[in-house]
Design a protein around this nucleic acid. Structure first.
Lengths: 252, 252
DNA sequence: CTAAAGCTTGACGCTGCGTCAAGGTCAAGT
DNA sequence: ACTTGACCTTGACGCAGCGTCAAGCTTTAG
């Protein structure tokens, strides 16, 4: 008829702290509070608690449970909505797992296959002439010393980053993503952020014309087959150019 | 060469608040703090931030990211561990979904099929005689008036609870769960908690012999075929009895 | 009568920032 | 020179759901 907080807790497998919490938020108030402040619960409390715990085990949040108990929501309704939530979460995790595994795989073998020439394609060795011609004589020197000065681990990290970016580009260009879609524009943002992180680009210099730089670069991806090869051929490079120019015009 | 916090934020698609947070926890400290307190970042910061964001998108926690950046963990290692985590979570959600859907289904049709006779089997109508004979003359009267006094919605809720408990019992008894296993004992706990929530049971009365009550009841599940039918036949009832007696002996 | 349980309220901690609040700083326009 | 307005700063609360001390009162068993 009249149970103490501990009795209720051990009977239902929860803790007294939880019961006090439920009391605080009004989810399950004690049926009686003695003059010494002790909480006491009766059968109705236990029945209610049973329902609370049942719903909680199914993953419902306390506010949702409260709504059900207040008859503001039917149990079926609440559970159906909850299932949608759960499914969405599960799918999100699925996509995450896919991404992570792709990243791991790209890291283990892509490191040799793509990274070297991909990154090389950008700031040194074989493109020395272009770099000097387009971005000034000292651009190559700066980029090169920067690259040489990096620790091997840092190099690897950058390669991984570029590899990830690149594979995302290819994935996007071979799917039906529009150049001005949010997804594509986010890729452009990442790409530009990466460019900005490379010393020698105009991004960070006081009056640096990052917009012109990106526009020129985007065009080069298409006209230079060596770059185009990195983005899945001419079609891919064209896609990259369109996305980048859209981004540059709108956000730079 | 020297970017403001906002420039970095918009370049990488995060917010200045995030960057300040990363500074606070030491994940990404500004390369320079001017005399006016303004934070400034350089290329190295951007490179580091790129990696942080890449790993964050894959779902890694900030401490894990910090470990990778400090070279305490290799990226591959961290990602591999993370994938395990993700898989476990995904499976947990899968089990949750299953449970919730089972509950919904049981609620929609089980409500008519099982609940009525299941709950009726316990405290009134057809078992009037037994109840009076075993637990005293007034037990039946109390239980019956209590049950009749409940609102329809409350009745339904209790039925659902009992239905869930019952299906778990059957699931456990038809699998290879040992009577003294944690899983089975938790079922017993729920069962006893439910019993205690029914008025007229000795659980809450000052000197109530809950242990004896449960032991007698457990035996009845086996000897009375009407109860046994609720738990999947004699085999199920035997399992229920064993679990309950184990629980009563140990915890009551 | 004392020690051991059991009870109370109060408050921090955890994850990763979002979101005010209150107030300096700086470049541009009047 | 003065006012906007944009951008910057350091706090500090909020969220979900309790776990986990802490300090102190009450009841019970020995």
């Amino acid at each position: 008829m009249d149970l103490s907080i501990q009795q209720v807790a051990s009977l239902t497998g929860t803790t007294s702290r939880t019961l006090r919490h439920y009391g605080d938020i009004g989810l399950l108030v004690p049926s009686r509070i003695a003059s010494n402040g002790y909480r006491h619960y009766d059968q109705a409390s236990l029945v209610r608690l049973q329902r609370i715990l049942l719903l909680r085990e199914l993953g419902l949040g306390l506010p949702a449970i409260a709504a059900v108990l207040k008859h503001e929501t039917s149990p079926t309704e609440a559970l159906a909505a909850h299932v949608l939530w759960l499914r969405a979460e599960q799918q999100r995790l699925g996509r995450l797992i896919e991404s992570v595994e792709k990243t791991i795989a790209a890291q283990e073998k892509g490191e040799e296959i793509m990274a070297e020439n991909m990154f090389d394609g950008f700031d040194h060795t074989q493109y020395k002439d272009e770099v000097e011609q387009r971005w000034g004589k000292d651009a190559y020197a700066r980029g090169d010393t920067w690259w040489r000065g990096m620790l091997p681990l840092e190099k690897q990290e950058l390669k991984e980053l570029v590899a990830a970016l690149n594979s995302d580009w290819i994935a996007a260009s071979t799917s039906t993503v529009a150049p001005d879609s949010t997804q594509a524009q986010e890729l452009a943002q990442r790409h530009v952020a990466w460019l900005a992180s490379v010393p020698g680009t105009p991004a960070s210099k006081p009056g640096g014309d990052m917009k012109g730089y990106v526009l020129g670069l985007a065009q080069m991806y298409v006209s230079d087959e060596r770059f185009a090869a990195n983005y899945g051929g001419l079609a891919g490079a064209t896609f990259v150019r369109d996305v980048l120019t859209t981004y540059a015009e709108r956000d730079l």
